[in-house]
Simulated scan of single mutants.
Amino acid sequence: MIETMTQAQLWNGPAADAWLTMQSTLDQLFEPFETAMVDAVTEVGARHVLDIGCGTGATTIAIGRAVAGRGHATGADLSVPMIDLAKQRAGLCGVDARFIAGDASRITADAPFDMAVSRFGIMFFDEPVAAFARIRAMLLPDAPLTAFAWRSPGENPFMTCAERATAEMLPPLPPQQADAPGQFAFADPDRVRAILADAGWSHAVLTPFDAECTMPLAALDAYLLHMGRVGIVLRQLDDASRAAVLAQLRDAFASFVDGDCVSFTAACWRIDARA
Rank of each mutant, 00 (worst) to 15 (best):
M1A: 13
T4N: 11
M5C: 00
Q7I: 10
L10H: 12
N12Q: 08
D17A: 14
D17W: 02
T21Y: 10
Q23V: 09
L26M: 15
D27R: 13
Q28F: 00
E31A: 14
E34K: 13
M37R: 08
V38H: 05
A40G: 11
E43L: 10
A46H: 02
R47V: 00
H48V: 07
D51N: 08
C54L: 06
G55E: 12
G57S: 11
T59K: 03
T60L: 07
A62V: 09
A68C: 11
A68Y: 04
G71M: 09
T74Q: 06
T74Y: 01
G75C: 06
D77I: 10
D77L: 12
D77A: 06
V80P: 00
M82A: 12
M82P: 01
I83A: 01
A86G: 07
K87M: 07
A90S: 13
C93F: 05
G94F: 08
D96L: 03
D96M: 10
A97C: 11
G102R: 05
A104V: 09
I107K: 00
P112M: 05
F113T: 04
M115K: 10
I122M: 14
F124Y: 15
F124W: 08
D126Y: 02
E127Q: 15
A131K: 06
F132R: 02
R134C: 14
I135R: 05
M138L: 15
M138T: 13
M138G: 04
D142P: 11
P144G: 01
P144Y: 00
L145S: 10
A147P: 08
A147M: 03
W150F: 13
R151V: 01
P153M: 04
E155A: 15
M159H: 08
R164K: 13
A165I: 09
M169H: 14
L170G: 03
P171I: 07
P174K: 08
P181C: 11
F184A: 06
F184N: 04
A185M: 03
D188P: 14
R191Q: 13
R193M: 11
I195D: 04
A197Q: 14
D198C: 07
D198T: 12
A199P: 09
S202F: 00
H203C: 09
A204I: 06
V205Y: 00
P208G: 10
C213L: 11
L220E: 04
L224V: 01
M227N: 11
V230R: 02
D238Y: 04
D238V: 14
A243G: 03
A243H: 09
Q248F: 00
L249S: 05
A252M: 03
F256V: 02
F256D: 09
V257W: 05
G259V: 03
A267C: 14
A267M: 10
C268W: 00
C268F: 00
A273T: 03
